[in-house]
């Protein structure tokens, strides 16, 4: 009789402890998230009010609220990416330090590479051109003094001289 009553008390105690467990678990989960863990995510998010200030170093109340939101989400087991997605959806892509590669954001992601490849191509072409010019200067000239100038500018010059000479002859 006495043993069964003790067993009953123990069972009751276990049930009460089990009922209290979820509440305890929730509290402990939130508090076990350290500031460093929060800041690890927060440094990738920007303050909504002050320009160009990451959340982890921002002093405003809005940022404090957002950091608490990050803490709660981490405690709920959400990943960094889940949290970034949430912030982008709620507050726009611009609050993220690394905007997701979608829509017009693709330009931000692709343009530097296009510019880099284009720049490298131009640089190589310029180098080749300079090398060719240097080789051309180093080689000896093959044109003789008597040979007519091949350039159009020279032709123009000759034409003008001939024209003037003809004019002088007509006068004489």
């Amino acid at each position: 009789m006495k043993t069964s009553r003790i067993t009953l008390y123990i069972l009751l105690l276990i049930v009460i402890m089990l009922m209290a467990l979820p509440v305890f678990a929730q509290d402990s989960d939130t508090t076990t998230i350290t500031d460093d863990q929060v800041n690890e995510v927060a440094k990738e998010v920007y303050c909504p009010v002050c320009e160009s200030t990451p959340l982890d170093v921002c002093e405003t109340q809005a940022c404090a609220d957002w950091r608490e939101l990050i803490r709660t989400k981490l405690a709920n087991g959400e990943s960094q990416q889940d949290i970034f997605d949430y912030f982008a959806e709620q507050y726009g892509d611009r609050v993220l330090a690394t905007p997701p590669a979608r829509g017009l954001n693709w330009l931000i992601w692709t343009w530097p590479f296009i510019a880099l490849i284009g720049g490298a191509y131009i640089f190589v072409r310029l180098l080749r051109g300079m090398r060719r010019a240097a080789v051309g200067e180093a080689s000896p000239t093959t044109t003789s003094v008597d040979s007519p100038s091949p350039t159009v500018e020279a032709d123009d010059y000759v034409n003008r001289i001939e024209k003037e000479l003809r004019g002088e002859q007509d006068k004489l």
């Binding site: 343009w111 296009i114 510019a115 284009g118 720049g119 191509y121 131009i122 072409r125 159009v152 032709d155 123009d156 034409n159 001939e162 024209k163 003809r166």
Partner: peptide
Amino acid sequence: MSEQAVEGTPKKPFNVTSIVIWVVVIGVL
């Protein structure tokens, strides 16, 4: 001696380098 109209320097065809430069400039702008 017959007079000949002086023609300008022949135009170079649009080369790849200038296309790349224009793409970069237009992209940046």
